[in-house]
């Protein structure tokens, strides 16, 4: 039962969050908006991974979550540095 709940209740909520983030990525007037949205996208994905792990009772995706967290932070930093330099 828990597995169904995780899959059919939590996932749609995250999917909705995903769509909202994408809206901001596409429409975001200024560059930093898009960067923030991308950052949020990472968190949504981490959420998805967590839900998926519970749903499939497989802890193996945690490493993916860690990598994602580490590496997306870097993306944001690079963006920030680029935005600061103008253009």
């Amino acid at each position: 039962m828990l597995r169904a709940l995780a899959l059919w209740a939590v996932m749609p909520v995250l999917a909705a969050a995903l769509v909202l983030t994408l809206y901001r990525i596409v429409r975001g007037p200024s560059a930093p908006d898009r960067v923030v949205a991308l950052d949020l996208l990472t968190v949504v994905v981490i959420g998805m991974i967590a839900a998926y792990e519970v749903a499939t009772d497989q802890p193996v995706y945690l490493d993916v979550a860690i990598t994602l967290a580490l590496v997306s932070f870097l993306g944001t930093i690079a963006f920030a540095r680029y935005v600061e330099r103008g253009r």
Binding site: V13, L14, A17, L18, L20, T21, V36, L40
Partner: peptide, 11 residues
């Protein structure tokens, strides 16, 4: 999930 949704709505 709800907190993440709120964050997305906020954004």
């Amino acid at each position: 999930a709800i907190w993440i949704l709120i964050a997305a709505a906020g954004i």
